[in-house]
């Protein structure tokens, strides 16, 4: 399931970096960043699904996968 909420950026890598460089970094942009005020009567999950997905409203769901699985996806 491709997670389209993940964005990537390449940090600057300099010759005098103290540690081995991290060439690609990622961050998640969940839906609530783009919804200033939650509209009423959004479609809802069933209780069991809501518990599984961690939110009552599918439009606000954000998978938030673990970081290391994102690495390959971004290359």
């Amino acid at each position: 399931m491709e997670n389209n909420q993940i964005r990537y950026y390449k940090p600057f890598v300099g010759p005098f970096d103290p540690c081995p460089p991290i060439r690609l970094k990622s961050f998640s942009t969940p839906p609530q960043l783009f919804i200033p005020f939650q509209p009423p009567n959004l479609p809802q999950f069933s209780p069991i699904e809501a518990l599984k997905y961690g939110t009552l409203w599918p439009s606000l769901f954000s998978p938030y996968d673990s970081k290391n699985t994102r690495q390959e996806a971004g290359d």
Partner: peptide
Amino acid sequence: LHELQAIDFVLVELNLYLDTH
């Protein structure tokens, strides 16, 4: 227990939603 946990979660979500609506 699973049903109770699910319905409790829905109540928490609705409660937080109603705080602002």
